[in-house]
Design a protein around this nucleic acid. Structure first.
Lengths: 237, 237
DNA sequence: AATGAAAAGATCGTATGCAATTTTTGTCAG
DNA sequence: CTGACAAAAATTGCATACGATCTTTTCATT
């Protein structure tokens, strides 16, 4: 339940990069909706939870701010981002632009191993879909995003892959805020169809499928302005 | 000549964000090729030059690392990035994917004022082109990149705009490393043609023009592996 | 009781210090 | 002269300290 459920069982002999580890943990918590938009993330609190000084906590928060998951206000601190409807639209507009290019490249480069990995992931998605409970729901949403990241990895462009990581994470935030039905967890059949197209090396079809897939996700959002944004923001804070 | 020619004449009453200012100055120096790829950027040195502590210098360097302009190696320090040919290809592949979408959106949204601003920029580019000397050359290259950023601003998507900022900056690094002729400073006629298409709201033409424009830039690169990268790096350092 | 000012408290921004690691320098054997 | 090894110097990683800024509480006044 806590933020630090310690995936790494072996304590912290990790002389490696703790900043990055903290960033990843916080990001997971945000995209999992365990940290609600608007939540304050104070440097001392984060540092205390992960048993590091404010220095490294601060660095992690700044990285998240760079990714758009956290908003930092000078002399006020860091907060989980609260994307506006306009921002939400821009996130999906960006995805509609980039993802067709990703799957097109993926269709050209996918190896048999890649396809196998994708299908394994689809199976995992289905398992989560059939499971019950809010925990399974979270796992399902996360897995759904991971599918898109897997596609980006297959495409083989590290830069686009990083862009997609940011876009998928921000999409998750947007869905948490504006998602209408819980069913926004993607039609998994659409994921299936995309992998099928990749296997056939049918780039055109794959691109068309992913665009309509993104359309479906966005169609499930309710991007009308909240009645009084200022009030809402005040309450959130 | 120094990195700190202090654009802000009024000392530093700026209670604002010094980290950001340092980041911008360093980025300018990198994209201007005043800092060669591979150059070491030590925290103390940067901090000393800008008269701040290592803490803020370090933060600026970390931001630049996030943008891909600087590479940070643990316990070794920060260096101006030295993109590999593969990285260079990925930068341009990303641009070929994103920029057509940008100009398409720009063609739909461009106001008369936007077009006027773009034309003013084109005039400035031409001035730099006719001037002599290495200083004018640098200004020309920078202005050429700024044109693409202006397009992104017109498109009105803040996320894509930020992606483009990163891609343009990294392109500049790539051109510094692999540019064949000094003429890599874009055919400015192509910029003209793009603005013309925007004014006509001819999104199709604008998209086609920008793709071939990017192709021309990349065609001027020599992306064959350097014979002995290590030796080269040694000389560079 | 409501308003406003002043003090107290909390949080951030930044500088500095210390330990750990890397790089350089210097020495000596081959 | 070359190579290797050891000590010294420099640099980074991180924690802590202190001043600045913002927030909240307190308290006097209308």
């Amino acid at each position: 339940m806590s933020l630090i459920d310690s995936t790494s069982a072996g304590g912290q002999p990790a002389g490696e990069d703790r900043t990055q580890a903290i960033r990843d943990r916080l990001r997971d918590a945000i995209v999992d909706h365990r940290l609600a938009p608007g939540t304050k993330l104070s440097e001392s609190e984060v540092g205390g939870l992960f048993e590091v000084s404010r220095t490294v906590a601060r660095a992690a928060l700044q990285m998240l701010a760079f990714e758009g998951l956290v908003r930092i206000e000078r002399n006020r601190g860091a907060f989980v981002a609260n994307p506006s409807p306009e921002e939400a639209r821009q996130v999906f507009a960006s995805r509609r632009l980039i993802e067709p290019g990703i799957v097109t490249a993926a269709a050209e480069r996918a190896t048999a191993g890649d396809v196998a990995r994708l299908r394994a992931h689809l199976a995992a998605e289905r398992r989560h879909m059939h499971a019950r409970g809010p925990e399974a729901r979270r796992a399902e949403i996360k897995a759904s995003g991971e599918f898109h990241l897997l596609l980006a990895a297959v495409a083989g462009n590290a830069i686009l892959q990083r862009f997609m990581e940011e876009l998928v994470a921000r999409s998750s935030l947007v869905i948490a805020l504006y998602g209408r039905t819980g069913a926004s967890s993607c039609g998994h059949d659409e994921h299936d169809a995309i992998v099928d197209a990749l296997e056939r090396r049918d780039a055109k079809a794959a691109a068309a499928l992913i665009v309509s897939h993104i359309d479906h996700i966005e169609a499930d959002l309710d991007l009308r302005l909240r009645t009084s944004p200022s009030l809402k923001a005040a309450l959130n804070l």
